[in-house]
Amino acid sequence: MPVAAGSSKTAVLYRMVMPDHICPFGLKSLDLLQREGYEVEDHLLETRAETDRFKAGQHVDATPQTFIGGRRIGGYDDLLRHFGKSVAQPYLAYQPVIAVFGTAALMALAASWGVGGTALSVRTVEWLIAFSMCILAILKLRDLESFSTMFLGYDLLAQRVVRYAYVYPFAEAVAGILMIAGALLWVAVPIALFIGTIGAVSVFKAVYVDKRELKCACVGGDSNVPLGFISLTENLMMVAMAIWMIVKSIRPDGL
């Protein structure tokens, strides 16, 4: 993109645009400059050799690189700082947990409203737990190998039967799906009760008895969530749901 003649706000950007790779931070830098009102002289580095020559010539380790007023500003984070904007930080440890349960709660409210015309009901709570189980199972199944590795660090049954670490996410998903449908509860309830009880005991022992500092596999194998209250809550939630379903089936008219 040529710089407009006489423009008071101009910038020069060098970024990688190759057949097999378009640098996302280059695109972000271009977008940020344009939003800040700059005319951008956009130089595309279209080969690895061209990119390496540029980095060697500028004595930099990475692209993109932005120049304003003849002065090198740097990469995307440097550009953010130049404009007084905050630089993205690694996500907070509990951010995935908040995302899971927050989304599950909204889904439960929406489902309850759509089916019964009211947002808050007993079914809302049931759906909240069941939706949460399904979302958590998806996160585990996203990288089953990583999940199993982290899970083996504390789950008592998985340490004895390694294949259980691979079965767990599927069992959690099946139980959650059946509970959403309210079908085949004779399958869902025992599964939830079994994996929830084993999980709760395992977490309690690892955290509160052995005093170990571990990461929780509840939101997947790349989780930064500390093993503790959240993990225990996930398992107790499944146990509570299973018990509730048993009580509900015994006394359907009294609920």
Rank of each mutant, 00 (worst) to 15 (best):
L27V: 13
L141R: 10
F170A: 11
M245R: 15
L13R: 08
L136I: 06
I177A: 15
R15D: 05
S112Y: 14
F229Y: 06
I138L: 12
G199L: 12
H43M: 03
G57E: 10
T124M: 10
Y94W: 14
F83R: 04
H43N: 12
I191Y: 07
M18S: 02
F147Q: 03
E213A: 12
F151T: 00
G199Y: 06
A192T: 04
V187M: 06
R71M: 06
Q95L: 15
I98A: 11
A188P: 04
A99Y: 14
V189R: 00
R35F: 03
L30C: 02
P96H: 13
R123F: 12
L185S: 11
I135A: 02
A88K: 15
L27A: 05
L45A: 03
G176H: 05
A108L: 11
K9G: 04
Y154A: 01
E234A: 10
I177W: 09
P19K: 00
L106F: 14
V17K: 09
Q95A: 15
Y14S: 07
A104C: 13
L106A: 14
S121W: 11
M237Y: 01
G57M: 11
S202V: 08
C218V: 07
L13V: 05
W113L: 07
E234D: 07
L152C: 03
M245D: 01
F25M: 01
V167N: 01
G84M: 12
A4V: 11
L255I: 14
T47S: 14
G153Q: 12
V60I: 13
D20A: 11
G221D: 03
V167P: 00
A104R: 01
A158H: 02
Q58M: 13
S146P: 02
L44E: 05
R35N: 11
A217N: 07
G57F: 06
Q89M: 04
A99S: 12
I195F: 04
L120K: 01
S231N: 06
K211S: 08
I246Y: 13
I191A: 01
L232F: 15
T66C: 00
F204Y: 14
A206Q: 05
D210L: 13
P252A: 04
P24H: 08
A240D: 00
M1L: 05
G75T: 10
P2L: 09
D143R: 07
S148R: 15
S86G: 07
V225R: 00
L80Y: 01
L152I: 01
V97M: 12
M237D: 07
L136T: 08
M245Q: 13
Q89H: 05
A158M: 03
